[in-house]
Design a protein around this nucleic acid. Structure first.
Lengths: 160, 160
DNA sequence: GAACAATAGTTGCATTCGCAAATATCGGTC
DNA sequence: GACCGATATTTGCGAATGCAACTATTGTTC
């Protein structure tokens, strides 16, 4: 018998939401939100990104990210500038202020992760990370059948 | 060197967001959103729930859930009624219509999960689920240090 | 049994979000 | 080099979200 509470997406989402909520509260005093942290940490790892790449890296929808980056620029955390040689793309980077801040926050993130996984041997955790990364790739296989199912439904609708 | 993209919350969130987005698109034709599905699947597993319990089970914030349940009631998917013996709590249940619908959707959820995990031996997946469930519990350990850090910060602020 | 605290849920309000449309630039074609 | 499709980002707008304040009911204390 199927149980939601034993399903993979449920267990995953629950941990994700909860970690996000706790981390948000932890960093609120620094004046940044969780999405802002994600953007800064992504830029800290890989600087000079285009908006679309940053969206893919952070899994933040692109229009949401556009506004978020605007706000972060206003606060002096990042820079955003059109490229000279290609005016339709922008390059986003950390400012020194943004860099200093994210380097304060990363140890907190490390601490959180450490508490989350400390009951398990590190081998299990690194396996788990590998699995998560591969599952992410596997999900691409679902795309076509989503299209197909929706197409079928639409066709049935217009006929009936 | 720390990398966001190798951190546990990042890998987790990415899979969670992506699965949610794909599943949303898959079920959109049935006229329900992902949060609605979560509520229905939770009620299918454990019926007759109070709002607060349902919020805990689904990790949906309680005021959001209150409105969501209202909308679902309006659509005839669930019932919501104050208890006779305790007027401050409500009991939420699936209607026959809601039950029929969720029983159509659950096989789709099963299918998605199957695709997600099919590259791994089921032992690994069940281990992974166990770990996710235990990590969720471990996170409670972070609560006190969040309070403490924020208290410390507030004290420093009022002094300086 | 009146007063007050605690529990459960709902609603006001400002913010965030995401889709779709609009804008801006680039690359190719004639 | 004007036109058209493709690519990259931004913006308009309605819906969803979450905190805090509010309402309603129950439990407790004197």
């Amino acid at each position: 018998m199927y149980r939601l509470t034993n399903s993979f997406p449920y267990l995953l989402n629950r941990v994700g939401v909860q970690m996000g909520e706790l981390f948000s509260r932890r960093i609120a005093g620094y004046g940044v939100t969780l999405p802002m942290y994600r953007v800064m940490a992504a830029l800290w790892e890989t600087g000079d990104q285009r908006l679309g790449d940053l969206a893919a890296m952070t899994t933040i929808e692109i229009s949401t990210l556009s506004r978020l980056v605007g706000e972060m620029k206003r606060r002096g955390l990042v820079t955003r500038a059109r490229l000279k040689d290609n005016g339709r793309t922008v390059a986003i980077n950390l400012t020194p202020k943004g860099r200093t801040l994210v380097e304060e926050l990363i140890p907190i993130a490390i601490r959180f992760e450490e508490v989350a996984v400390r009951d398990f041997p590190s081998k299990n955790i690194s396996d788990l990370k590998t699995i998560l990364a591969e599952i992410y790739e596997s999900l691409k296989a679902l795309e076509p059948e989503i299209e197909e199912a929706n197409k079928a439904r639409k066709a049935a609708k217009s006929k009936g």
